[in-house]
């Protein structure tokens, strides 16, 4: 399988630049979600964009429920993409689940990245009473989420999109996210959602040895502030900033805020 085709890999920016930015997208969207961010860095960075398996314009024929049952399949994919892209002095910018994927890659092959940026990422979504961890979801909420996706995917998309996007004064944003979710195969969307919402990678956080920026927005239904505070406490030397944006997709709703945060870090 041609890796470039499998992940719809695109290169942008300045090929002569000595520094690379790699953007990893979250669930339900694709590399296009960074289209308002990329221009700000095109002159000074080589830029790598790709679509996660099952999303965007990735090759669906290579999607495997077994491979992507957990994040491990995505981690192996990102390591392959990095070997293909041959980046230097690379900062990985991961939105949502891709933040965790990038962190896991960094912990396995530290030489691949210099810095990490995690936008709306979570090491665990499910609350854990045993360790007093709050992830934002309880068992009943996740069960209801999966049932809703399984029984009526279209209806779930209509209900979930505005809640995740927020920014009610700009309904076109939620509509854009809904269209992106509707483009997914419902069976793959459900499998990916389960891989994400049932993950628990809290043990990865203390192992991070790279400078890390954690970006938090307001009113993020998927990742409440207490989660990013947890990440900041457990990732050695990490820095957390709250940007002036709401919802789970600041790269779409408040790109200038995200650009400013990235520029302050990279």
């Amino acid at each position: 399988m041609d890796l470039s085709k499998k992940h719809n890999i695109h290169f942008a920016g300045n090929p002569q630049a000595g520094k690379t930015l790699v953007f990893g997208h979250g669930f339900g969207i694709d590399q296009q979600s960074f289209s308002q961010i990329v221009p700000a860095f095109e002159q000074d960075y080589r830029i790598v964009l790709y679509d996660n398996a099952g999303g965007g314009n990735s090759d669906l024929s290579s999607y495997s429920y077994e491979r992507y049952e957990t994040l491990e399949g995505y981690v192996t994919d990102l390591m392959s993409i990095m070997a293909f892209a041959q980046g230097t002095h690379t900062t990985f910018i991961g939105h949502s689940v891709s933040g965790m994927i990038g962190m896991m890659v960094a912990n396995r092959q530290p030489q691949l990245f210099d810095k990490l940026v995690l936008i709306g990422s979570s090491p665990r979504y499910l609350d854990d009473q045993h360790s007093s961890y709050i992830g934002g979801f309880d068992d009943a909420a996740l069960k209801a989420l999966f049932e809703a996706m399984q029984t009526n995917y279209e209806a779930w998309v209509i209900g979930f999109s505005p809640m995740a996007m927020r920014n009610e004064d700009r309904p076109e944003l939620a509509k854009q996210f809904a269209s992106s979710l509707q483009a997914l195969r419902p069976d793959i969307a459900l499998a990916v959602a389960k891989a994400i919402f049932l993950l628990d990678h809290r043990q990865e956080l203390p192992r991070v040895s790279h400078p890390t920026l954690v970006i938090q927005t307001a009113n993020d239904i998927v990742v409440p502030p207490i989660v990013s505070e947890y990440m900041e406490r457990h990732i050695p030397g990490s820095k957390r900033i709250k940007i002036n944006a709401e919802g789970h997709f600041p790269q779409l709703s408040a790109p200038h805020e995200v650009i400013a945060a990235l520029q302050s870090f990279v």
Binding site: S62, Y63, S64, E66, R67, E72, G73
Partner: peptide, 8 residues
């Protein structure tokens, strides 16, 4: 070797 695309 779980399938064509996956070994775990």
């Amino acid at each position: 070797f779980e399938n064509e695309h996956s070994a775990k």
